[in-house]
């Protein structure tokens, strides 16, 4: 309810509401963009662009179309993919970014200290590489079920169930 109110105020162009939403989601958006383009400085600029864009187009969001974060995620992904395409590294990046994401998650011991009490390591307990791949494709890169199935060379029905079990694992780890 509080989120809905915040979004409403944001759509009424209240800067304070915008700032709260930015505080809630900016790190996530930055993370998603950087995972796709793999350039932290450029990713920061694109992240700014994305938030400026959602402010300008705030009226185009409608809760019946999906979650606010999902809307934001879509805009961020499209902006990052546009960037990748503009560099014409599209094909290469698609293949590599899963590895990159895995790398970020696995090699982030130094991040652990900076972050909150739920360490990344805890989240990754029992999280197989297959999970990291599917989460990366579906959430970070916006692959459709069919595209993810082709990418991972698994039946389309498996995408949905595998993803479900992976998310469930993360949720379990969060509660540790």
């Amino acid at each position: 309810m509080e989120l809905e109110l915040l979004i409403q105020k944001f759509q009424n162009k209240e800067v304070s509401a915008f700032e709260k939403l930015y505080a809630m989601y900016s790190e996530n958006i930055y993370g998603v963009i950087n995972t796709i383009i793999r350039n932290p400085e450029r990713a920061q600029e694109i992240c700014q662009d994305v938030f400026v864009k959602i402010w300008e187009k705030s009226e185009s969001y409608n809760s019946s179309k999906g979650r606010f974060f999902t809307w934001l995620l879509n805009i961020a992904r499209n902006a990052a993919i546009d960037e990748v395409r503009s560099k014409s590294h599209k094909q290469q990046k698609k293949n590599l970014s899963t590895e990159y994401f895995v790398g970020i998650l696995e090699g982030s011991e130094d991040l652990e200290g900076k972050m909150d009490t739920i360490g990344l390591k805890n989240l990754l307990i029992n999280l197989k590489e297959k999970c990291v791949q599917i989460i990366s494709l579906l959430y970070f890169q916006g692959f459709t079920q069919k595209e993810a199935a082709e990418e991972l060379d698994i039946p389309i029905g498996t995408v949905k169930t595998r993803n479900r079990s992976c998310i469930s694992q993360i949720r379990e780890n969060m509660n540790i």
Binding site: G31, L111, M115, I167
Partner: peptide, 16 residues
């Protein structure tokens, strides 16, 4: 589900 994705994506950020 959203909360779990928020955590994962937040962890992937190099830090703003």
């Amino acid at each position: 589900i959203e909360a779990s994705i928020l955590v994962i994506s937040e962890k992937s950020s190099p830090g703003l």
